[in-house]
Design a protein around this nucleic acid. Structure first.
Lengths: 202, 202
DNA sequence: GTCTATACCTAGATAGAC
DNA sequence: GTCTATCTAGGTATAGAC
C-alpha cells in the first residue's frame, strides 16, 4: 500500500480541482456570489455537493480561489500593458482600453470581480486586488510626472480615482453590448481617464 | 373602544419606528450590514427581536429604510451644493469637498453606504442612489460645458467616473483620520476630480 | 403592544455506504 | 474517492402569554 500518491493520482486530483474552480467561476459569472451555493457549483461540475469538500476545506476557500484566479489574470494583463511599450500616457490609455474591452467581453465575471455582493472573505480579497490596481496605475502616473507628460499631483490619489472611475463606469453599462456602443464607451472612458491624470486633451 | 388610533398613539408608534431606524443605522455604521442581525438591532434599541416586526414587515424592509434615509441625506446635501452659488467648476469643487468631509466624519456609515457587503435589496438601492449621484454630477458637467468652462466630453461618463473615483478614494483611506491628512486628502481629491472633468488646473 | 419561546428555513458541512 | 443522506448552526419570522 503506497504511503505516497503516485504522479498519476496527483495529476488527476489536480485536474478535478481545476475543473471545479473553472465551473465555479462560470457559475459565479452567471448568477453572482450570493447564488453560487455549494450545491449549484457541484451540479455545474457534475459532482455531488459533498465531494466539493474533497478539494476545498470550505466554501469560502473555494470562493477566494475563484476570485484570485480570475482577478489575478486581469491584474497581470493590466500590468503587462502598463509596463509595456510607449510613453506613460500612451500606456495608460492602452491599459484602460484593454481593461474595458476585457470587462465588456465577460460582463458577468467583471461584475462579480468588481462589485457583486459577496461574502466577507471575497470582499477582503477584492480590497487587496484594488490596491494592486492602484499600485499599477500609481507607477504609470509617477513615470508620467517624471517624464514631464503629466502635471504635479498625488499619484496615489489619482491611481485610486482611476481604479474607482473605471470600475463604476464599467459596472453599470446600461445599454446593450453592441459593437458601436462599446467603441464609443472605450473612447469616452479613455478620454476621461487621461483627463483624470492630467494628460493634455488629444 | 376606538376604531381609530388617537393622535398620541400614532405619534408614539412613529417615534418608536424612528428610534428603531436610528439605532439600526448606528449598528450598521459600526458593524456593517452582514453583522446587523435583527437581534443585534433590537438589542441596540432596547426591545425584543420579535417587536421589530411591529414596525417593519421584514428585515430587508428595515435595512432598505435605513439605507434610504442615510443615503438620501447625502444626495440631498450634494444636490444643494452642486445647485448652489458660483460657476459650475466652483460648485463641483465645493461638492467634492463637502462630500469628502461628511464621509470622513462618519466613516462607518459612509463605508456602509458606499461599499460594505449587503443583502441584495440594499445592493439594489445602492445602485439606484449611485445613479442619482451620477445625475447630479452630469448636470454640473453639462453646465460647465455650456458655459465654456469645461471641454467637450460625455457628461454621463464623466459623472460616473466622478462617482466611482470619489467613492474609491474615500472607502480606503489608509491613514489615520488626523486633521492634516484630511485637509490634504480633500485638496488632492478635489484637484483630481476637477482634472477628471477637464477643468483648468488651478 | 411588548416579551419569551420557538418554529422553520436555508445553506454549509459531515458520516458512512459503495 | 465519490455519492446519498443527514446533521447542524444561524438567523428570520411567528405564536401565544402577560
Amino acid at each position: 500500500m503506497a504511503y505516497r500518491k503516485t504522479p498519476a493520482e496527483i495529476s488527476r486530483l489536480e485536474a478535478a480541482r481545476e475543473r471545479l474552480i473553472g465551473c465555479a467561476t462560470e457559475v459565479v459569472a452567471e448568477v453572482g456570489w450570493a447564488q453560487a451555493s455549494v450545491t449549484a457549483v457541484a451540479d455545474a461540475a457534475g459532482i455531488a455537493a459533498g465531494s466539493v469538500y474533497q478539494h476545498f476545506p470550505s466554501k469560502a476557500a473555494l470562493a477566494v480561489e475563484v476570485f484570485r484566479r480570475a482577478a489575478g489574470r486581469e491584474v497581470e494583463m493590466l500590468g503587462k500593458v502598463l509596463g509595456g511599450a510607449g510613453d506613460a500616457v500612451e500606456r495608460l490609455a492602452h491599459g484602460v482600453e484593454v481593461f474595458t474591452r476585457r470587462a465588456l467581453e465577460n460582463r458577468g465575471l467583471a461584475y462579480a470581480l468588481l462589485a457583486a455582493p459577496a461574502e466577507p472573505a471575497v470582499g477582503a480579497e477584492r480590497l487587496a486586488f484594488r490596491l494592486r490596481y492602484r499600485a499599477l496605475f500609481a507607477e504609470v502616473v509617477r513615470e508620467g510626472m517624471a517624464a514631464g507628460l503629466l502635471p504635479r499631483q498625488n499619484p496615489e490619489i489619482t491611481a485610486a480615482a482611476l481604479t474607482g472611475a473605471i470600475g463604476e463606469v464599467l459596472v453599470h453599462p446600461l445599454g446593450a453590448p453592441e459593437e458601436l456602443a462599446t467603441e464609443q464607451l472605450v473612447a469616452d472612458l479613455t478620454a476621461t481617464a487621461l483627463r483624470c491624470a492630467g494628460a493634455p486633451t488629444a
